[in-house]
Design a protein around this nucleic acid. Structure first.
Lengths: 205, 205
DNA sequence: ACAACAATGTTGCCAGTGTCTACTCTCGCG
DNA sequence: CGCGAGAGTAGACACTGGCAACATTGTTGT
């Protein structure tokens, strides 16, 4: 009878990604606060000090998690907007953007909380860049609309920032329990239409 | 020579409030994550298990902190709006509201983060109520505007929620470093005017 | 082929922490 | 006056993050 005790190799192979996966599961299950490096090490089947080779710090692990979150969020937003069609009307694309953001945020509540709360340590430019990339898309959208005359306004980045902030705020209120999930759809709807009403070019008298 | 070792009484007197004060200082200094009950106990000069008589849990302490934050925020918002004058024009009052919120949030960055991230435990109705009280003011403002015909729209609570979310989102982006402090003024300005443009009654053709 | 070396994991340790239980002190009330 | 409830103390336990010293493996230059 062969030995059933699985003999793991000394080198795990891809500890880093496995740790991140386990971390994300833990995040989803118990929140970021009680996410312990030692626990993750146990989950992956590795000694308690092993993670240190890949993450200098608990904070570093969380930052990496946040960064990967921003990357995936960015992808989701991009595909959501693109699915509408390249020359689709702006309102639809805006709504798709906001809707996709909110969906991502509800499906990954703890992760989004981590992303926003993460006061990334001084050197962590990676997470900031990923966030900027995700956010930048809306500025492009706005600029597009302005160039085509569908929108009025001056600074596309500034207005984009405001929209992004609105959606972010909505999900934040949702995740902290200030508003019930059932109201989500309605909220993003009024937010987007409110914005569009405010940004449309003045009708000729 | 008299004994200089201050003889503290066995009963501290008002441990609870002193702990909260110390906690707020710690919050401001080091953030919520590294806020240790034992540390607070030391600060106040009391044994490490004493806080337990007043806060069942670390979480309970944080919740109490968040609640007090909402109460104070509510007061600040109220006075800010009232200072404009009882019959003052709506744009000015809205701007005052948003401005006061943002100011509070920047002056108490860590606290506001705690307030928003605090997924208050099941029983904690107190913090939710305090939050609702703070937020409710904007709904009243909107409703007022609608009744006087200065604003168009249907559900005042819903639009109030959207505005609140916008301001909340702006401060969140600020505190997480996605936007520089210098842009704050401009952002709340465009947010408010954007909203007002969208919510004003249609001009007669 | 092989020695040196850099990566990657492991064990052991330390200072802290939150929480629990049992004990002690003090004040106020019958 | 005594005594019980409230408020603070002391000790223990399981756990955590971080560090240092050691072990094992993959790689690479010669």
């Amino acid at each position: 009878m062969p030995d059933t005790t699985e003999r793991r190799p000394y080198h795990h192979g891809n500890l880093r990604t496995d740790l991140l996966d386990a971390a994300e599961r833990g995040l989803r299950a118990h929140g970021a606060e009680r996410l312990s490096l030692r626990d993750l090490a146990r989950d992956v089947g590795v000694s308690h000090a092993a993670p240190r080779r890949h993450f200098a710090d608990r904070r570093a692990l969380l930052d990496a998690l946040a960064e990967s979150g921003f990357v995936r969020l960015g992808e989701r937003l991009r595909t959501a907007v693109n699915e509408i069609g390249d020359e689709g009307d702006l309102p639809a694309r805006l709504h798709a953007f906001a809707s996709a953001y909110v969906r991502f945020a509800t499906e990954n509540a703890a992760l989004i909380g981590l992303m926003n709360s993460s006061k990334h340590r001084p050197g962590a430019t990676a997470v900031a860049e990923a966030a900027a990339a995700a956010f930048g898309q809306i500025s492009d959208l706005i600029q597009d609309g302005q160039e085509r005359g569908e929108l009025e306004g001056d600074d596309p980045e500034e207005t984009g920032l405001v929209i992004y902030a609105t959606v972010l705020g909505i999900t934040s209120m949702l995740n902290s329990g200030m508003v019930e999930p059932a109201r989500l759809e309605g909220l993003v709807g009024t937010a987007v239409t409110q914005f569009l009403r405010g940004a449309r070019p003045a009708e000729p008298r």
